[in-house]
Computed example of a mutant assay.
Amino acid sequence: MDRPPFLDFHTRLMPGPDAVDRQLALMAELGIDRAVLAAGAVIDPDRLARQLVEGGQFDSDADNDAVLAACARSGGRLIPFFFANPHRPAGVYRERAAEFRGLELSPAVHGIPFADERMVDLVRVAGEFGHPVYTVSLGQPGFGAGDLVELAKRFPDITFVLGHCGFLAVDLHAVNQIAPQPNILAETSGTFSFIVKAALARLGADRVLFGSEHPHQHPAVEITKYRTLDLPEETWNKVVRLNALRVLGER
């Protein structure tokens, strides 16, 4: 079967002066034509792991300028998302939004729940610029997939993407919670293969997106996971490329 090239919907900027060259070379090696890129290294991994379980807040800003510079060097192969800090006014994002293609919100990093008006203000700006909103959920009140559903109900014309299909690699509960809300899609990096199957069955092939979480996860791992699923060609094409193009507003 002649598979189309991947569009990786979730990557982060690698460290180092040759980060762009290394990322593009790896993408070419693996058949990844394009990738959504957001800032990385916003929070120390040990602190992030603790906050995932215990909660907490972190108010540092992401290096969105570095993301823009990397994307400019990529010849259009890297697609910039703005990693917003809800501890700052939404105007910070509004002033830069036209330079980016989407918005990332991370309750895991910044510790602000979905219903907080600071999060709502950022989503409102995303709607003004036609941006999709990528985010993650946690297993804490105010931060769960159900809380994301309530936010998405307020903005039915905005596409939300739930990263990693939820909080855990086996988060069927998150898949079930977002299923009735049609403007939430699921991105599958880091999940077990049976969760990908469940997401396809319960959300439909139009609401699932391939992502890698590179460089934290090697893209070959996620590609191998998909290849073991033996998906029909139409489903494969939607999940690894066409859905992402639609969410990004491209043909």
Score class of each variant (00 low, 15 high):
V53P: 04
A35V: 08
R246A: 11
I158L: 01
V161W: 11
A198D: 03
L24N: 04
E150F: 01
D2K: 13
R154F: 00
H110M: 14
H173D: 14
V208Q: 04
P107F: 06
S137L: 09
L231M: 11
V36I: 15
L185D: 02
L200I: 13
A28C: 05
P113R: 10
L231H: 11
D230P: 00
T228E: 13
A90Y: 10
A72R: 11
F143V: 11
H10A: 12
K225E: 14
L68G: 08
G166R: 12
R251Q: 05
L245E: 14
R77P: 06
G40P: 10
Q57T: 15
R12G: 02
V123E: 01
Y134E: 04
D230H: 12
F83Y: 11
A41H: 00
F81M: 06
L30A: 08
D116H: 12
E128R: 08
P45I: 12
V161F: 10
L26K: 06
G111K: 04
E150Y: 03
Q23W: 04
L203P: 05
L138A: 07
D63N: 14
H164P: 10
D33T: 02
A199N: 11
H131F: 11
F143K: 13
G91L: 12
A62S: 14
G163E: 07
L7G: 04
G211K: 08
E150W: 02
H110T: 12
R251E: 07
P141R: 13
G163T: 09
D61C: 11
G142Q: 07
I158A: 05
A198R: 08
P215Y: 08
R96W: 00
A72N: 02
C71V: 02
H164N: 15
P15C: 01
V239I: 07
F6N: 00
M14Y: 01
A205N: 10
P45Q: 09
G146L: 06
G75P: 05
I178Q: 04
A72W: 01
S106T: 15
T135M: 12
D206T: 02
C71D: 01
G56E: 09
R251G: 05
A66E: 00
R22E: 14
V120C: 10
F129Q: 03
G211Y: 10
E187N: 09
F6R: 02
Q51I: 08
A62Q: 13
Y134A: 13
S74T: 04
L138S: 02
K197L: 15
F114G: 00
G16I: 14
R124T: 05
D206P: 03
R251A: 11
D116V: 06
G102Q: 10
P182D: 00
R77A: 05
A115V: 06
V175A: 11
P132T: 15
F129I: 07
L151K: 08
F160D: 07
F6H: 08
R124Y: 07
P89I: 07
